[in-house]
Design a protein around this nucleic acid. Structure first.
Lengths: 350, 350
DNA sequence: GGGGGACTGGAGAGCGCTCTCCAATCAGGT
DNA sequence: ACCTGATTGGAGAGCGCTCTCCAGTCCCCC
């Protein structure tokens, strides 16, 4: 196997390209990475040689010296053990919430030539393997989306010293950057809408109460309602799936048959709630007004379409990506949090 | 920066561990990779040194010499340009179809210590970047899921000479391995069920007809119906989303108001079809029987729950993973295809 | 007791790339 | 004509790891 021509099966290296272009390895490297002044004619020469040889830089060799991979991971993590048939994926992937996240992140990453790999950590075993994988330097940083707050991933990430950004406020304070929406402000929008519609007997279906986002939506809603003169707002806890939304609604109806308004902590559960209301012979919104949260596809698919609280997810995701890149560029930059304001989207359900 | 102690910020290397354990770099490498006979006492010594230093092998250095990354990509690809709000994710991610795929793949990969990264190629730009990324050797192989057949990805993969496995038969014959279900056999199950129920005026809603799977389901259904004495089965094309299923059903009802059975090429569209039937005042299954395909969550969520054709997706996914690993281990192993048999799952809609 | 084999551990050569020096070249100023 | 300084290209030292040789050790058997 000679130096100046790649073996038939092997891929060409910088060395080969340099040989073909009649320059040194260093010069080819410069052209490829676009640094320092290289004579335009030589640049052209090199480019032709690259095209001719079909050269593709070897990532391993490159990141061995640069300590960069130019890719980041989007990790979706869940505390409990689950298989993929379980509501796990139903909760994250199924929700267009997730698509909007990816979209916002890619919008920032793509132009900068950074690839995004998606990884799952659905149980402890997976999480351990994942941390090992990350520590080995496969990616430069991590954006973590937790489906529940008992999730140890944020802790593991800070421990491992990996550049990371969370998609929500961590349960316990952690020296880690995150992006979140002003949950209670969003809940207040819902409270305002329901009371302005004239709803008198209002209830709420909350998300899992071990999640900060769920807590904030619930307390924010109750506070706003209290300020409007509704001292007590009954609530039932769901887990963000359509099924639990339906069940929660049934339970509420059994206890408070004269309900005329309900705030549901996400659209998927709201979908279930609307179904339950239909089954009980109630009309939405004439008999009971329903407000969801997220403004996901589910909101539009619903009959009637859901009035809902929209989070600027794309912007939030873009901000996460930007924060992460900043941390990668400067590992010493201090943890930052950015909070976004939700808005009310009026459709037909309230 | 001395050789025998890592700089405060830097991570320890093999060299450091070797120093601590009082052995050579090669021996540490042997212990870590578990090869050849190393004296148990020395093994223990090395293991302690690893623990003490918190050593984690550097993936870049490792794969530079081994030419392995121990990770594979699951690529979800789409022909047309789309954003993530579009039905794209609605079609792949939203469908629990996808969760089952991931589950089956991980079942094979995890025990072998191979990581799976998920990548998206939702348009040509993304696809080009993706191919570049793959060629750079970030992963050892690719499992490709195409959402449409105009998708150039399979071609690009074979061209790039990457070990790859497709989740379905490629449109045009390609020297590439794939796993698929016996689509027409599945369609026949649906035809049998509908005719056995006594349905006389049967129609079908197909998937995008540029996809082999859609074609096979349609032609398989028509053939089976013909054999049962139904010479002509009207069909309308959808694109696997709930919305197009609804629209297709409306169109069918307008043309054939006396319909009493319909086979829909996937559950999501079947969901839409059931909605349209409801809207038109028809009962399912009393007035019109509906059979879906996939046996996804949607089938259970539906009212009434859908009778559907189930593909053994987990097994299929596991087989894909196995095929891929085989190709990675032996790049010269010939392309293979494996076909699985679908089954009828009876619920209430037919 | 000596020779041959099996087993263990070390030395060292790269894997393909980046990047820091350094040398060469050339223009301009004196 | 000579010096200065900018500009451009090359040489070569690693990045951290694996893996092929090789040398040393130990044991067994003749």
């Amino acid at each position: 196997m000679s130096k100046d021509r790649p073996a038939p099966g092997a891929s060409p290296t910088l060395e080969h390209v340099a040989k073909v272009a009649g320059v040194s390895r260093a010069t080819v490297s410069r052209v490829i990475n676009g640094i320092r002044n290289v004579d335009p004619q030589i640049q052209e020469l090199v480019r032709q040689a690259v095209a001719q040889t079909g050269y593709v830089p070897n990532q391993a060799a490159r990141s061995l010296v640069t300590r960069r991979t130019n890719s980041v991971a989007l990790v979706v993590s869940e505390a409990e053990h689950r298989t993929f048939d379980d509501p796990f994926l139903g909760r994250i992937f199924t929700d267009p919430f997730f698509g909007r996240l990816v979209s916002g992140i890619m919008g920032v990453l793509r132009p900068r030539g950074v690839a995004m790999v998606l990884m799952l950590a659905e149980n402890d075993q997976a999480r351990t393997q994942l941390i090992g994988y990350l520590k080995q330097g496969h990616v430069d940083g991590v954006i973590a989306v937790s489906a529940s707050s008992a999730d140890p991933l944020p802790g593991l990430l800070t421990e491992a010293g990996l550049p990371a950004v969370l998609s929500q406020r961590p349960v316990s304070p952690l020296p880690i950057s995150y992006v979140d929406a002003a949950q209670s402000a969003g809940a207040k929008l819902a409270a305002d809408r329901l009371t302005e519609r004239g709803c008198r007997r209002v209830a709420t279906i909350s998300g899992p109460l071990d999640m900060p986002a769920s807590q904030d939506r619930l307390s924010g809603f109750r506070d706003a309602m209290a300020r409007r003169g509704h001292a007590y707002v009954p609530s039932v806890e769901g887990n963000f799936t359509q099924e639990t939304g339906e069940r929660a609604m049934k339970q509420l109806l059994a206890e408070y048959p004269d309900l005329d308004g309900v705030f549901v902590a996400n659209d998927l559960m709201a979908l279930g709630a609307v179904l339950a209301l239909h089954d009980s012979g109630r009309r939405v919104p004439e008999d009971v007004a329903v407000i969801g949260f997220d403004d996901s596809n589910a909101a539009v698919m619903s009959r009637p379409p859901l009035t809902t609280i929209r989070q600027p997810l794309e912007d939030m995701a873009a901000e996460m990506a930007r924060l992460l890149l900043k941390h990668i560029d400067d590992p010493d930059s201090p943890p930052t949090s950015v909070i976004f304001e939700p808005t009310l989207v009026v459709r037909e359900s309230a």
